[in-house]
Design a protein around this nucleic acid. Structure first.
Length: 812
RNA sequence: GCCCGGGUGGCGAAACUGGCAGACGCAACGGACUUAAAAUCCGUUGACCCGAAAGGGUCGUGCGGGUUCGAUCCCCGCCCCGGGCACCA
């Protein structure tokens, strides 16, 4: 056949249409006849258009999915939409479009883009989290958590803009002010909100890391470990002088408690309010609302004395009670004892306010330090501490905790940095929280058979006032499921991280209307074999998903402890060293490149530019190279596939390169996914084939052409499919077997071995396969160039790695 | 400040982790084809030095030390870039 030109537009549009018209094409068989393989990529937020980060993520996943199909697996490769969220509401307010309409049109557009990229998804399993068919199961699962005490209400602080009279998300607070009222400082308001008790699973989330250690990047596990922040210490009750009241503090250094010179409360601590009257109360409110506290890096420690005193239960010492901006309400007990002699923060604070400094720990090999310019924060020997004096810190901590317990003024305690997950959002575009507030019965869960609690569509979004659902009377007013009396619905919706915490289970059983999914259906596919996504989700999404999985295990929906066996975190796509983002206005749209060069080129380029785990800087200059490569490949295959002439003298050479390439790419897939080197190997192969072309026999031309198509198929599916059809084979190409490599054919004719003299390359010898160490040494020592360098000097020793290297060490 | 990554030609990178530094691609330069251009094809391309040339030599993987026959790779001390955490008591 004559050489054909590579017309990417015609080829890709043709196959794109045929693929879209065939819903069976990418379906998982799911009958157990083949081993299963679940490839999962993080589902996108439908912001409007695909960006390069998506293209990179999905190119990696699609390449893997196609490879696993060719390896004979029954592959599950689904896609969906993380469709609830604030941007839809913002767009609604700005452009007067309904969030639903905005979201659905974005999904339609982005789906078209995904199809155009040639990604092989089983669209029958598409999940969109804003549909009632999906979010009703958020509600159902929420109710199960309520039953188990895992979902509960408590008072918590929210950002409040007095101008809009509404709650703001953290993203809507800019420089401590409202995003739409740049001069209006944001206040903190107390609101009763819903929480999920993830802290109850803190230990399991730590322990079960063992199960996924082998398949997850250690960096991600470390980040999660730090996030959970397990810390062993002691809780101690200080007395409030003149009353029976106690103030509980948490410390990891109870061994330093004789050096405590004040107690400091977080501004939000209830006792703070109690102790502050008049001018102090005003000062307190200002501190609570102070937005600069959210930027700890630049926070200047400030505080004030309450006029009250606390009593140290160990020695009866009376110390002043302060309130300070650096003490966190959300951690420990929200109150600390300050030991300036042995803690840097306390030192800084107490020095500033002239609070006394009492050293009580001496270094193991020294005397009690003079604390003048810096605290001594290490472990040492306890001093000036009554009966505890002389004990090493570690031992004192243990014994003193035990004493607190015995005497009823405290106990050893484990504290986590991890907090319970606040899921209430005073927003419209999210899952309604399925409870009813009844004046008679209190908080009443909506019964399962009344789910879903539907989000009404006719809601006015002004961005002002209370939660939008609270202004919708027919949604708000209902009857109590328990007593039948008039009641009001909860108007908060759920955090969208809820939606993405279990969608990958729903993919397996997406149309189930009895349960979130049937356990037996889902079980064979779990844990997910390979999850792929950005490292940006290393903490929240992945931690919530792990938590959710454990909860579902505890209610017998799933059997696995961990949802994702292997995790791959791709690097970010940057532009000039900066993350692409809307606010920076440096987003690159893939459409242009796809239009000009085609999806295959775009995919190859994305994979070729850098190894997938590394950040890549977007620089289109090398994209031409990928297009040229596909063009050359296309032409080579079409002009060789049914050639009838050729001597065959270069056959062995071509087959050798072919099998070396198969070996190389197979190992890249199975080990480290450095697809940049896989593609480079394919380029080398094509270069070699072009060089050998004139001497190839017809049989080898055909064989090599066919294998070449199979090798490129996971990376450039359109070109591969077109070529496969062009050479008269039956498709689809990604259902063919991945070519096997033959080690004999891949073997080099002879060994070329570098020879060094004193570690510097001085020559090369050609040795036969299977030649001995001695033979190779003899060859090296007979080599002219090598002899010239030795120049008759005495040989100290010769180091030979048979088949790899000879190094001759000489004197001088 | 702490914890991870990373630093290799003009650029993206490779070297499968102690054994031939720079594969593959981009860009650049030279040539062929062309009335011309584009496209395509062929060649050169780390720096410096010797040589008319073929060829040869020295240096070279952020900087400074070390281990080793041999270091981009291991160890010690720095510098720079990226990411995460950061008053977590």
């Amino acid at each position: 056949m004559p050489e054909k030109p590579y017309n990417h537009q015609e080829i890709e549009l043709n196959w794109s249409q045929r693929w879209s018209a065939d819903p069976e094409l990418y379906k998982a068989v799911n009958d157990g006849s083949k081993p299963r393989y679940y490839v999962l990529e993080m589902l996108p937020y439908p912001s409007g258009r695909l960006h390069m980060g998506h293209v990179r993520n999905y190119s990696i996943g699609d390449t893997l999915a196609r490879y696993q199909w060719m390896r004979g697996f029954d592959v599950l490769h689904p896609m969906g939409w993380d469709a609830f969220g604030l941007p839809a509401e913002n767009a609604a307010i700005k452009n007067n479009r309904h969030p639903s309409e905005w979201t659905h049109s974005n999904i339609a557009h982005m789906k078209k883009q995904l199809l155009r990229m040639g990604f092989a998804y089983d669209w029958d399993r598409e999940v969109s989290t804003c549909e009632p068919e999906y979010y009703r199961w958020n509600q159902w699962l929420f109710l199960r958590m309520m039953e188990r005490g895992l979902a509960y209400r408590k008072v918590s602080l929210v950002n409040w803009c007095p101008e809009c009279a509404t709650v703001l998300a953290n993203e809507q607070v800019e420089n401590g002010c409202c995003w739409r009222h740049e001069t209006t400082p944001v206040e903190q308001r107390e609101l009763v909100q819903w929480f999920l008790r993830i802290t109850a699973y803190a230990e399991q989330l730590l322990d079960d890391m063992k199960q996924i250690e082998a398949g997850w990047p250690s960096q991600v596990l470390t980040m999660q470990r730090n996030w959970i922040g397990r810390s062993e210490g002691t809780e101690v009750d200080f007395g409030l002088a003149g009353t029976d009241q106690k103030i509980r503090v948490f410390t990891t250094r109870v061994d330093t408690i004789y050096g405590a010179t004040c107690v400091i409360l977080a501004p939000e601590h209830p006792v703070s309010k109690q102790l502050c009257e008049g001018a102090l109360a005003t000062q307190l409110k200002a501190m609570v609302d102070d937005q600069s506290r959210k930027d700890p890096e630049n926070l200047v420690k400030e505080g004030f004395f309450t006029g009250h005193y606390a009593v140290n239960p160990y020695n009866g010492a009376t110390v002043p009670i302060w309130i300070a901006n650096f003490v966190l309400w959300g951690y420990g007990t929200g109150a600390i004892m300050a030991v300036p002699a042995h803690d840097e923060r306390d030192f800084e604070f107490c020095t500033k306010y002239g609070i006394s400094i009492v050293p009580v720990i001496r270094p193991v090999d020294g005397t009690l330090p003079v604390i003048a310019t810096e605290p001594f924060t290490e472990y040492g020997i306890v001093e000036n501490s009554g009966e505890w004096s002389g004990l090493p810190s570690a031992e004192a901590r243990k014994l003193m905790s035990a004493r607190a317990k015995e005497n009823g003024f405290g106990e050893a305690s484990i504290t986590y940095r991890l907090k319970d997950w606040g899921v209430s959002r005073q927003r419209y575009w999210g899952t309604p929280i399925p409870v009813v507030h009844c004046p008679a019965c209190g908080v009443v869960p909506v019964p399962d058979d009344q789910l879903p609690v539907l989000l009404p569509s006719d809601v006015e979004l002004t961005g002002q006032g209370k939660s939008p659902l609270a202004n919708h009377p027919s949604f708000l007013n209902t009857t109590c499921p328990k007593c039948g009396g008039p009641a009001q619905r909860e108007t908060d919706t759920m955090d969208t991280f809820v939606d993405s915490s279990w969608y990958f289970f729903r993919y397996v059983d997406p149309k189930n209307d009895k349960l979130p999914f049937t356990p037996e259906t889902v079980q064979p596919w779990f844990p997910v074999d390979q999850y792929i996504g950005g490292v940006t989700h290393a903490i929240l999404h992945l931690l919530y998903s792990r938590f959710w999985c454990k909860v579902m295990r505890d209610i017998s929906l799933v059997k696995v402890d961990e949802p994702f066996k292997n995790l791959f975190t791709q690097g970010m796509v940057q532009l000039n060293g900066q993350t692409m983002s809307k606010s920076k206005g440096n987003i690159v749209d893939p459409d242009e490149m796809v239009e000009k060069y085609g999806a295959d080129t775009c995919r190859l380029f994305t994979l070729f530019a850098a190894p997938p785990e590394k950040n890549m800087d977007w620089n289109e200059s090398s994209v031409e190279g990928q297009y040229r490569f596909l063009t050359r490949l296309f032409k080579w295959v079409t002009r060789n596939a049914d050639a009838t002439e050729g001597s065959g003298e270069t056959d062995a050479q071509a087959l050798r390169k072919l099998h070396q390439t198969i070996r190389k790419i197979t190992s890249d897939f199975d080990n480290r996914w450095h697809f940049n080197t896989s593609i480079a190997a394919l380029m080398e192969l094509l270069n070699a084939l072009q060089a050998a072309e004139a001497g190839l026999s017809p049989a080898v031309r055909q064989e090599v052409a066919a294998k070449l198509i199979l090798l490129i198929a996971p990376f450039a599916p359109y070109a591969a499919e077109e070529l496969w059809a062009t050479i008269g084979r039956t498709g689809p190409v990604f259902r063919q077997s991945w070519p096997a490599f033959d080690p004999e054919l891949a073997k080099e004719e002879a060994l070329e071995i570098p020879v060094q003299v004193n570690g510097k390359l001085r020559g090369r010898i050609i040795a036969a396969h299977g030649s001995t160490k001695e033979e190779q040494e003899a060859l090296a020592l007979a080599d002219e160039k090598v002899l010239a360098f030795i120049a008759g000097r005495p040989i100290v020793k010769v180091i030979t790695l048979p088949g790899k290297l000879v190094n001759i060490v000489i004197k001088g």
